[in-house]
Design a protein around this nucleic acid. Structure first.
Length: 569
RNA sequence: UGCCCGGUGGUGUAAUGGUAGCACGGGUGGCUCUGAACCACCUAGUCAAGGUUCGAAUCCUUGCUGGGCAACCA
């Protein structure tokens, strides 16, 4: 475990969520010999996203908080959907988040032999039978939500026949779908999961780990609990949709007479302006609404990483949102606040102008330039200082000037004096426009007495602007990201509509920024605050040495934007 | 129309029969060489109705309401 990755919710002020309370209670009563052993059990059929991070932090965090262990176990019981590549990406993402499973990397497929034995055990005990019904017939016999099901005509086969048939299923004598092994429970159960659930199905498919050894594969329900049991898991934490499966989880374990972990369910994460289901993420990728699983607008772990999120920020977020059984939707602002909080403390400051407006300092000698000292991080003296060049021609942000400013606009305007950060106070003396009447250049004068940014006479200005020296500036592509969806709930669509209709057409805007020279050397993995703009990181895919492409991780909080909005309203 | 699980300010989350608190958001000020950060104050809530109790967010009943379940997916 790295730097506190597993500490219990520090921000929660010691308040425990309902799972932590259950675990604490079990520790008190000695139910599991005061052990805490959890597991994170992804299916290797897709990329991890922020919702998985919640589960990862919960499982690994719970174990760490109690001096316990957390396994990484791949739930790979369906060879037609799972791939080795996903295994690797999942391992990388969990590790990147700051968690370590040591040597406890497991696969449900490691247990196929044991599972098979257990299946024969249940057959022998008269608790399981081979069923010849087709998938359609099986469905018909299952009944509905309000009507009980009907027994399969094969339900009362003799043990010997069941054993023989099951062995022949394993031996590959039957085609896909021809037969199943089913648990003999209760076709009239109000819980559909208990209506003689399928334990094994025939699939002549090659498995990413077991190859062609098997042509029958166990179902999730006949695998998960026993895997937990084999690994001596104490608390098997999963999401709410498995609540109805818990009786079946318990049934298999009790009938098998093996060690019995406790399944606990919690609500999965939803975020505003985002979709989380694997199916929808897959569509975004396949239909090319994003550049891939690691598109910086995707809330996949790899997308967030590329966007500039840090593991610390994601863990902080997971602490803040809590854990409960209520299906809730967390405000995207909470995620953004988490990365701001982390980066505010750690990111070095730089100056960059994303929408340049040229400024000429008329009383600054032509051809002259000088180096000024700028602080790297006002909150961290250890971050040191750097030099930035200043000259007669500069760029400032276009929106930092208004020819006819409203009352609450503090920035540059004709005749007004502002400070250029770490440089001089300047006064706008003239506005140059093109034929279309657009402002193309500002003429200013500077006060040489204000070098460094403060005036000897003690006079104040209401605004400090960021700037870049024009002849020294480095041009770079900067990608400004916004929410992928334009509305808080993308699934809120009119009848027959589609969540894609809610895509935000402005989720990516590419601009050419003018950056202070030191930024030319920036490399992926570094993050910066561009002063007054936001947090930025070099893109890990498209940056070239000496020519970084920047991704905007998130903006700074923008009170001025709020004031403007109020003015509009 | 069956079964299971939920419902606390706008949002998320605490309070296990004893003062409804915290965070985010929103608002107002302060500070400031980032309209950032930081600081202070304010805002706003127990789904409803009965019942038990000296006392109910908490226990009981009923209703309302949200989610899940009818893959040989996980």
């Amino acid at each position: 475990m790295t730097d506190g990755a597993g500490e219990p919710a520090a921000e929660a002020g010691g308040k425990l969520n309902f799972i932590e309370k259950l675990v604490a209670e079990d520790n008190k009563t000695g139910r599991f010999d005061r052990r805490v052993h959890t597991r994170f059990p992804p299916e290797p059929n897709g990329f991890l996203h922020i919702g998985h991070a919640k589960s990862i932090c919960l499982n690994f965090g719970l174990a760490a908080a109690h001096g316990g262990l957390c396994n990484l176990r791949f739930d790979d019981t369906n060879p037609t959907k799972e791939e080795e590549a996903y295994v690797e990406s999942i391992k990388r993402d969990v590790r990147w988040l700051g968690f370590d499973w040591d040597d406890r990397l497991y696969f449900a497929s490691d247990y196929f032999d044991q599972l098979y034995e257990w299946a024969e055990q249940l057959i022998t005990a008269g608790k399981a039978y081979v069923c010849d019904l087709t998938p359609e017939q099986t469905r018909e016999h299952r009944g509905t939500l309000t009507e009980p099901g009907r027994n399969s005509p094969f339900r009362d086969r003799a043990v010997a026949e069941n054993l023989d048939l099951f062995r022949r299923m394993k031996a590959g004598e039957f085609p896909d779908g021809a037969r199943t092994l089913r648990a003999k429970i209760d076709m009239a159960s109000p819980n559909l999961n208990m209506r003689d659930p399928v334990m094994y199905r025939i699939m002549h498919a090659s498995h990413h780990r077991t190859g062609d050894k098997w042509c029958i594969y166990p179902m999730y329900d006949f695998t998960h609990g026993q895997s937990d049991s084999l690994e001596r898991i104490t608390h098997s934490i999963c999401t709410l949709e498995f609540e109805n499966h818990r009786p079946l989880y318990d049934w298999y374990i009790e009938e098998l007479g093996i060690y019995h972990p406790q399944q606990i369910e919690f609500a999965r994460l939803s975020l505003t302006y985002a979709v989380m289901s694997k199916r929808k993420l897959l569509r975004l990728v396949e239909e090319k609404h994003v550049s891939g699983w690691d598109d910086p607008r995707m809330l996949t772990i790899s997308g967030l990483r590329r966007r500039g999120y840090t593991p610390e920020a994601i863990r902080l977020f997971c602490d803040r949102i809590g854990v409960a059984k209520f299906n809730s939707t967390v405000d995207m602002g909470v995620l953004e606040l988490s990365i701001r909080d982390d980066l505010n403390a750690r990111a070095e400051r730089r100056m960059a102008v994303l929408d340049p407006l040229k400024v000429v300092i008329e009383n600054y000698p032509e051809g002259q330039s000088e180096q000024l000292e700028a602080v790297n991080n006002p909150g961290d003296e250890g971050a040191g200082v750097r030099s930035v060049p200043f000259s007669r021609e500069l760029y400032i942000e276009r929106e930092d000037f208004m020819e006819d400013p409203p009352k609450k606009f503090f920035r540059l305007a004709p005749g007004r004096e502002v400070r250029l950060r770490y440089a001089y106070m300047v006064t706008c003396t003239d506005v140059v426009k093109n034929a279309a009447g657009e402002v193309v250049e500002l003429r200013c004068t500077y006060d040489p007495e204000t070098r460094g940014g403060s005036a000897p006479d003690g006079r104040k200005v209401k605004a400090t602007l960021h700037w870049v020296s024009a002849p020294d500036a480095v041009a770079a592509e900067v990608r400004l990201y916004d929410h992928l969806f334009a509305v808080p709930n993308p699934d809120d669509v009119p009848d027959g509509g589609d969540f894609l209709a809610n895509l935000n057409p402005h989720s990516l805007e590419r601009v050419t920024g003018q950056l202070e020279p030191s930024l030319a050397a920036a490399t992926p993995g570094e993050f910066f605050q561009f002063e007054r703009l936001g947090y930025f990181t070099p893109d890990s895919v498209d940056s070239k040495p000496g020519r970084p492409v920047f991704n905007r991780t998130t903006t700074l909080r923008d009170t001025w934007a709020k004031v403007q909005k109020q003015g509009d309203a």
